[in-house]
Write a protein that binds this DNA or RNA. Structure first.
Lengths: 187, 187
DNA sequence: TCTCATTTTGAGTGATTATTCAAAATACTG
DNA sequence: CAGTATTTTGAATAATCACTCAAAATGAGA
């Protein structure tokens, strides 16, 4: 029996780039064909449908994001310092020329109306990220404080992901985030 | 010479509902035809193109939003109280069954990649809203504080607009917003 | 090397996309 | 009422959409 000639993760990474940038409706399978180099038949044979491919790409993006946060938090001296580092990274990302917010957030907003599976999936992953931050905060703060600050943190992350499209907004956002999250160990 | 038989604002309002919910790429002109009751030819005769119609709809939405904020702020005893009322309204909106975030924010995220006119337009209107809040804050706080708190406020508004899709999140958001904007006159 | 399940191919499917346009209907002006 | 500028009509356009499938190519196990 013949084995797949392409690397599935490589295809998914290329799909992430496309879907993240242009969204579900804004991306065509023709563009997927171009971006991946696969023929239509191969894509459908391997992934089933546009929605299934999008879902796998989104899943991989979420897994990478969660793993990245976990790594950052585990290597930080304290939850607060880990969070500061993550926020700075999110702000810094927005200064890049090819900035395109967050794939999960974009999907949550784009596909909410159709009671879409993909919207639910993105939402679940975002909730998972909040829960992750909460669990790290819970090591240093009481339960109520941890829950509240995790929400406040997510509001700020979402805010920065939207605000970040503004030209030259990095410094504004750093000040804004310091203003709203004064309990973090800012340097 | 014959006069248009339809009310332009009525058509725009129906277009707002459609585009707000499904986005630019997610809405078809066929859906516009259905939603407005106009024939394709009439739409193109009056509005020119899908993009031009979308732009007019977005403009009307932005004008309404800005007018609403201005009314709220003018009728409030203080800038802080006006902002509290606005934030509560934004949180409250997210509890509705047909919640779909903010048309300006959704457009900013959806159409960023294509260096689109519509993305720029939405961004400009969002900047205008920040400037509006800043000007109200400037009546009660010094310039630096006003600017910083306007940014912090916008981060929270954006955050709530994204977070709001979460089921049963209103109370969490109220606490989160109080946590992040402690300088507001919360009751 | 032969077998055969699996993968790849790419032209082709019918549906849907945004948009057009000549003809018909309309309503203001003189 | 006649004249005319404007609006409405709705079938038609070419392009693009997601997706299919029979046939060819592939490669691991016998």
């Amino acid at each position: 029996m013949a084995k797949a000639q392409f690397d599935r993760n490589d295809i998914l990474d290329k799909s992430i780039q496309l879907f993240w940038r242009h969204g579900f409706s804004g991306s065509s399978m023709q563009q997927v064909v171009q971006a991946t180099g696969l023929k239509p038949g191969s894509i459908y044979h391997s992934f089933g449908s546009k929605e299934a491919l999008f879902r796998e790409a989104l899943d991989r993006y979420a897994q990478k994001s969660i793993a990245h946060i976990r790594r950052l938090m585990d290597s930080a001296p304290s939850a607060g310092e880990g969070i500061c580092a993550h926020l700075e990274a999110v702000v810094e990302q927005s200064t890049r020329e090819d900035y395109c917010s967050c794939f999960l957030i974009k999907t949550r907003l784009e596909l909410a109306a159709e009671a879409n599976q993909l919207h639910k999936f993105a939402s679940a992953k975002l909730d998972e990220i909040e829960e992750l931050f909460r669990s790290y905060l819970a090591k240093e703060f009481d339960e109520t404080t941890s829950r509240q600050r995790a929400v406040s943190l997510m509001l700020h992350i979402f805010g920065v992901r939207v605000y970040g499209y503004r030209q030259g907004s990095a410094e504004r956002m750093r000040l804004g985030v310091k203003e709203g999250l004064p309990w973090l160990p800012w340097k």
